[in-house]
Design a protein around this nucleic acid. Structure first.
Length: 929
DNA sequence: CCCTTCACG
DNA sequence: GACGTACGTGAAGGGT
């Protein structure tokens, strides 16, 4: 099973290439250039990526290189590395190829001016240790041996296939790793020109450090030294020894060039690697790549065939059956402590919270269930009974005690907590003062693996993966008027239900976790969705302030207007009817009033949608205009002004939406209860509702929007030079498109071009475009052909996307997010065409979603780092973030928000187009745009 | 529970 | 020639 603990592999690329050069014959590549060292390097990366993913495999990996000749060591000592001979002539051209090879493996390549690779490695080791990770340094450089720590940091010498731990360091230097620096300082290094002390080599250096403990003590104890020559040399060269100590000391506190998390390993995309191997003519490796047909699963998913082990991992062990009677009810301290110890020993625990209500902001905790292995689960009741005066509360541990005991476990960085839809549980614990970390969320995992393939509810997944029917909430709490809350459920029954949820969650985690790497969605899970779980939980809990009195006034105004319109409609329609019934309205218009042109939908009813009513209104049918106005006002009143007032939480005075992480197939969030992602803005009347969203006194609401992010991404992904240039130069993209398509950019042409641009994003069809533009389908086709002719990249993108989705059944975003399309091979042409349009759109919409999600995951940290910890991110509306900012801090906050959003793709993805962010603020949401 | 309509990106 | 009239959502109300 995958370890809860991340394991970082740091490859010392610079030192490797020198050793490879001397070890390997002077091979040349397909272009006749020397490539022996590069071949050795490529083979080594292959071995790492292939073999190591098996048992003690890396979860994160990076190649570290020397960036520059000059470092702080040259300032310390101008002779440092001064006598180093220049690298051999046929090695020099191979240096840049190291970066090419690394990129071909899709591995991060890290270098930093002023630092040697060793220092960067030391910085990452320090940071990873702090985060509770394990580290393996792939090198045999003796300087790096200073960093080794038992069970935490080791080294791997791939050339000799040997692990280097404390024992090996001791064998070599006779001292533990933390004293290696002192030994190195005394002995010096002729290659790097570290002076050391003349006459002292490895043997004497070791012996001195062993005897006196460290360099300073050696230098302070020269009186005791017997050998006169040694004694004098130490006295004469004490300065050099101290200088040498500084030269071999590794910098470990420099800011990381790339955050640790970004180094996550996510399989190896085959295409760039294949292209590189072909270009170099590395046939052996190439054949291994193509020839491995046994690993059908990985191939089908488009993964490289280097790592078949994870893909073919055996199914989880027994028991495969579920026995609810085995779950334990925990009502005493000793039993609680036993479960906590079990979870800690295990390193991973699944959990689920039971509450009296599904609204996490007001819910009270009723109990917690834990699972430490399949079938091994318990339930800890803390809030049962009590609410009901008739029945006595059952014996149970006090909530405060349970929380106090659980807190160290839930916050232990070495214990992974697993939940299904963890944001709910996270909030319940946060309300009790516990910040759960680290965590895995099986709902998010399922979504990242199987979006578009199956639903992701716990009960549905139990059925799908284990053919197990979960106890339903209804069976436990009843339904309708007889429904009770969970705190009223008897403990034995509650234990069965809650224990099962934790048990299923645990087994689901075992089943899904190995699939992340095998199906190459680790990156999107680790870098986009998992970090978002606590972020979303915080946003939901914060809520947004809504002005109730303002909404009530607005509602009253709307109601008066609606009543007046109703009278006018009845008059125009020659009698009353239910205006809100499309069926009745259709009959009134096309039968009673005898209007012509009634269009019927597939259900046989007249269509009365906005297009039809606009058409009638334009023909002078007064009733149609009145109905349109009536519809707008009732919509605004019923869906917004009335509903929003009812949604204000009495405790917080704010509205708390729920964001769904699995709501949209493309990876977007969705918002519900209430939906705050569809608050009106397009009409003046509707816009008034935005003014109801206000900031706390002393604060403003800030809105930050990505400008045209999807078109920018289309320009990047489809590689359209004109579009990329236009974005780079800040040009008006629709005018530019109009110029290309129609040779003019007047208002009419620009509007048409804008429609065409959107049509492209949505998967164009000539009929659809024709309908939108009110032109014939021939004209529509002409425009599309012209678009493809001017922007051939778009046509290629569409063609390649469709070819890929037809072959694999899914699309991917730039971050690797998969969306599956069940209908892509449907025999029904309209079903198939629908799936094709969605598949063209999904990578673009999904990449946009990935980017803003990364911005969100980073936002709180970036604000805190800038001293803006009291700026609070409240809402996300697909390409917009809404924040609450203390008055007087607007400019500072805007700068941080803009920076985080504009750079959110980096470093995982480098875009050819800039991301532009527009920021505004005001007393309310309406004024922030 | 399905359909239609309409609010948003 | 038929298909159906752009991608992704959630909520409300009518009708069955």
């Amino acid at each position: 099973m995958p370890d809860a603990q991340p394991h970082l592999y740091l490859v010392d690329g610079s030192s490797y290439i020198f050793r490879a050069y001397h070890r390997l014959p002077p091979l040349t590549n397909r272009h006749g250039q020397p490539a022996g060292a590069v071949y050795g390097y490529t083979a080594m990366l292959w071995k790492l990526a292939d073999g190591l993913a098996k048992a003690e495999g890396p979860t994160h990996m990076a190649v570290i290189l020397d960036a520059s000749e000059s470092t702080f060591r040259n300032q310390l000592y101008d002779q440092y590395k001064a006598h180093r001979p220049p690298p051999p002539e046929d090695l020099v051209p191979q240096f840049p190829l190291i970066r090419t090879a690394t990129r071909a493996f899709s591995l991060p390549c890290i270098e930093e001016n002023g630092l040697e690779a060793d220092d960067i490695i030391a910085c990452y080791v320090t940071a990873a240790k702090k985060a509770g990770w394990k580290v393996t340094i792939v090198s045999s450089d003796k300087d790096l041996m200073q960093l080794i720590e038992d069970g935490v940091v080791d080294m791997l010498d791939t050339m000799n296939d040997r692990r280097i731990g404390i024992a090996e360091v001791h064998d070599k230097f006779g001292v533990p790793p933390e004293k290696v620096g002192d030994v190195l300082a005394l002995m010096g290094d002729s290659v790097d020109n570290v002076p050391g002390v003349p006459g002292i080599g490895p043997k004497t250096a070791t012996q001195l450090v062993q005897q006196y403990g460290d360099l300073e003590t050696v230098l302070a104890s020269t009186e005791e030294i017997k050998k006169p020559k040694l004694k004098q040399s130490l006295i004469d060269h004490a300065g050099n020894a101290r200088l040498s100590r500084e030269l071999v000391r590794l910098v470990c506190d420099h800011p990381l060039p790339q955050p640790l998390d970004e180094l996550v390993l996510d399989g190896i995309p085959p295409d760039p690697l294949r292209a590189f191997l072909e270009d170099q003519g590395f046939k052996t490796l190439l054949n291994r790549m193509v020839g491995n047909g046994a690993n059908g699963g990985a191939q089908r998913s488009g993964a490289v065939v280097l790592n078949p082990v994870v893909a073919s991992a055996p199914p989880p062990p027994e028991p495969t059956t579920f026995d609810r009677s085995r779950y334990e009810t925990v009502t005493d301290e000793a039993t609680l402590d036993r479960w906590i110890a079990e979870a800690r020993a295990n390193g991973v625990v699944a959990l689920d919270t039971e509450t009296d209500c599904i609204d996490c902001v007001v819910a009270k905790l009723v109990g917690v269930s834990l699972a430490t292995a399949p079938g091994q689960a318990c339930y800890i009741p803390v809030g049962h009974g009590g609410g009901d005066l008739l029945s006595e509360a059952p014996q149970q541990l006090p909530m405060a005690l349970v929380m106090e005991r659980l807190k160290p476990l839930l916050e232990d960085p070495a214990v992974l907590k697993v939940g299904h839809n963890f944001k709910f549980d996270w909030t319940m614990f946060a309300k009790a003062g516990v910040e759960v970390a680290p965590l895995d969320d099986t709902l998010v995992m399922s979504f990242d693996l199987d979006a578009g393939r199956n639903p992701h509810g716990l009960d549905e997944l139990a059925k799908l993966h284990f053919e197990h029917q979960c106890l339903s909430f209804k069976e436990v709490c009843g339904s309708g008027r007889n429904q009770c809350t969970f705190d009223q459920v008897p403990l034995d029954r509650a234990t069965e239900y809650a224990g099962e949820d934790a048990d299923v969650t645990f087994r689901l985690w075992q089943r899904l976790k190995p699939r992340l790497a095998a199906e190459r969605v680790t990156r999107v899970y680790e870098l986009v969705d998992r970090p978002l779980v606590p972020t979303i939980a915080r946003m939901e809990r914060r809520g947004v302030k809504v002005d109730r009195d303002y909404l009530a006034d607005l509602s009253a105004t709307f109601s008066t207007e609606i009543a007046a319109l109703e009278e006018q409609v009845y008059e125009a329609a020659c009698g009353p009817f239910t205006i809100g019934s499309p069926q009745q309205l259709g009959q009134v218009l096309y039968e009673r009033l005898g209007l012509k042109g009634g269009r019927k939908g597939k259900s046989g009813a007249y269509s009365t949608d906005v297009n039809e009513l606009e058409r009638l209104a334009a023909e002078g049918v007064s009733c149609a205009r009145l109905v349109l106005d009536w519809r707008q006002l009732t919509k605004l009143r019923n869906t917004y002004t009335e509903a929003l007032q009812a949604q204000i939480n009495p405790e917080t005075g704010r509205v708390h939406t729920s964001f769904s992480l699995s709501g949209a197939q493309t990876g977007r969030l969705s918002s519900n209860d209430p939906n705050l992602q569809n608050i009106p803005i397009r009409t003046e009347l509707g816009r008034k509702i935005r003014d109801a969203f206000v900031a706390e006194p002393g604060h403003v609401l800030m809105s930050a929007d990505y400008s045209q992010i999807e078109l920018r991404l289309a320009a990047h992904m489809a590689d359209v030079p004109q579009l990329k240039d236009a974005f780079a130069n800040g040009a008006d993209i629709h005018s530019m498109t109009a110029e290309e398509l129609f040779g003019t950019a007047d208002r009419d042409a620009r509007n048409k071009a804008k429609t065409v641009n959107f049509a492209i994003l949505y998967g164009i069809s000539s009929w659809g475009l024709a309908g939108r533009l009110g032109i014939s389908k021939e004209e529509g086709k002409f425009i599309i052909d012209r678009y493809f002719e001017r922007f051939p990249g778009i046509q290629t993108y569409i063609g390649e996307t469709l070819a890929f989705v037809r072959e694999h059944g899914f699309t991917r975003t730039l971050f690797g997010r998969k969306t599956h399309f069940a209908n892509i091979r449907a025999s029904n042409p309209s079903h198939r065409a629908g799936a094709e349009r969605a598949a063209i759109n999904a990578p673009i919409q999904g990449t946009s979603a990935d980017i803003i999600k990364r911005a969100m995951a980073r936002m709180d940290g970036a604000l805190a780092a800038a001293g803006l910890a009291d700026v609070r991110m409240l809402l996300q509306v697909h390409d917009e973030l809404v924040l609450e900012v203390p008055q007087g801090r607007e400019e500072e906050a805007a700068a941080v928000v803009r920076q985080v959003m504009a750079t959110a793709a980096e470093p995982a993805v480098t875009l050819d187009v800039p991301l532009d962010v527009e920021v505004g603020w005001g007393a309310h949401w309406g004024a922030a745009h």
